[in-house]
Design a protein around this nucleic acid. Structure first.
Length: 108
DNA sequence: GAACTGACTCAGC
DNA sequence: GGCTGAGCCAGTT
């Protein structure tokens, strides 16, 4: 992509997340080759407000919906994820290992 | 233009 | 085994 922004790469990976699956900020950052920039992934999603980004499928490494408060939408992240078959309990994804989607492993 | 901040993660104590 | 500090980079002040 012409835009060599870290953001654009993040957006593309997030769009590639299949329904019923989730990934972590660190997984995306690692896929892009920068482990320490996990923060930027979250920051990128923060800027993704109003865009066609399924940000609700991105959680932190332990499956907690850290950014649900920042997610702008009629429905909560939890509700959207539950509609895709993902179980959320106490803001944390149940069976996280089963729904976890690693871009560097499944996309590549 | 320098300092601060942020949806994270890992390592060390 | 829980808490603290450091690191990453870009956008905002």
């Amino acid at each position: 992509m012409d835009n060599s922004s870290f953001f654009q790469d993040v957006y593309e990976v997030v769009r590639l997340i299949p329904p019923g699956r989730v990934t972590s900020y660190g997984a995306i950052a690692h896929y892009l080759g920068t482990r320490g920039s996990a923060r930027m992934v979250g920051w990128a999603l923060n800027s993704s407000y109003g865009q066609e980004i399924p940000a609700h499928r991105v959680v932190n490494r332990i499956g907690v919906l850290t950014g649900k408060m920042y997610f702008g939408g009629n429905k909560s992240m939890q509700e959207l994820l539950e509609e895709e078959g993902i179980i959320i309990k106490d803001n944390q994804i149940e069976q996280f290992d089963q729904v976890f989607w690693d871009p560097s492993r499944e996309l590549l």
